[in-house]
Design a protein around this nucleic acid. Structure first.
Lengths: 186, 186
DNA sequence: AGCCTCAGTCAACACCTGTAGAATGACCCG
DNA sequence: CGGGTCATTCTACAGGTGTTGACTGAGGCT
């Protein structure tokens, strides 16, 4: 009854559309990605995309929904290491949904809101672990820095950063992150 | 002969168009900025914008042309301090042309190319000052970091970063930058 | 004064976009 | 096997975009 080939195929095409949308949003950003292009990539009619997702906006929201990893917490040392771990992961495999969000954040309000919220949550957890009166600012700088690195690697593709070994990047960045988390106190 | 009121008024309107274009490109990015909007802000007919600048593309190039500050150089210590100085400046007054470029870099190829070139020049000068075999990677990370901070402050407007005192930001960032320039060698 | 240059405007074009709704046709159930 | 459900497509529209070229009228030169 439930898993008739009809329902199955429906889920398949829906997933295919969503995957292609993710890719295109990540490659071109919100504005330059057209429903028609998504449909074409998914070998499907544009109308079907609308039928399933209602609007380009809703498609974007669904496509960029990320089952995000757990928020950091613990001591300053621990937080620093968790952040580096997570960065390592973002550097190794390309998190398409996040990249789509990042690429669109400067031109699409919805993406900006999403990034801002995500950054806020992160920041709160980080600043709680930092024993400093400027904890909030430090946490914000940490977010900005990490965003900058991921951006530079996957989207801007800065020379020598785009194709560098993640391990090396992490090693170089460790003192930097530790100084921001104040894990190394003066 | 040369400075007839005709020629003068022409230069005025050209400058006004360019200024409004800069602002709009910085606020909305390339795609969301329309020639019509620029014209309206400059209280001018859209056709005139085309007449003076030929195309939206050329208008963008002109608007984002930045008489950029001198490239860094010297010892690792000196480079670190120069970068912090320049960052301080970017944090204090909003460099509209650069912000326009930054906001558009993720969606507009021309902006991306420009940023990439600029970053490349920067990186070369920086990496030359760093006595390390990973100098290139370190320089790239430095660029990524600084881009991230400026982005986070002016465009994403991260909490606690958007309205922080530049001095404090610089102070917090100094150890971070010095660790990247390897000014503090192990 | 008279002409002509030129800053600036107007109307229109061709195109592309998101979106809506009717039409189609294959598949499943009774 | 017949009928209806439902995934999918087709056609169309309304608005916005960059861009064009003809037009206008005030300013300055002779």
């Amino acid at each position: 009854m439930s898993d008739s080939s009809r329902a199955q195929q429906r889920r398949d095409t829906q997933a295919r559309i969503l995957a292609e949308a993710r890719t295109l949003f990540a490659e071109r950003g919100y504005e330059r990605t057209t429903i028609r292009a998504v449909a074409e990539q998914a070998t499907v009619d544009p109308g079907l995309v609308m039928h399933y997702y209602g609007s380009k906006e809703r498609l974007f929201v669904q496509a960029t929904q990320d089952h995000s990893s757990p928020l950091p917490g613990g001591s300053a040392d621990q937080v620093a290491e968790q952040l580096l771990d997570r960065l390592h992961q973002s550097l190794t495999d390309e998190p398409t949904a996040s990249l789509a969000l990042l690429r669109s954040m400067l031109t699409h309000p919805e993406a900006a809101r999403e990034i801002l919220n995500s950054a806020r949550d992160h920041k709160d957890r980080i600043s709680a672990a930092i024993p400093d009166d400027q904890a909030d600012l430090r946490a914000a700088l940490l977010s900005a820095t990490l965003i900058g690195v991921v951006l530079g690697r996957h989207l801007v593709q800065l020379d020598h950063l785009a194709d560098a070994d993640p391990e090396q990047i992490i090693d170089i960045l460790r003192p930097c992150v530790r100084s921001l988390t104040a894990a190394d106190r003066p």
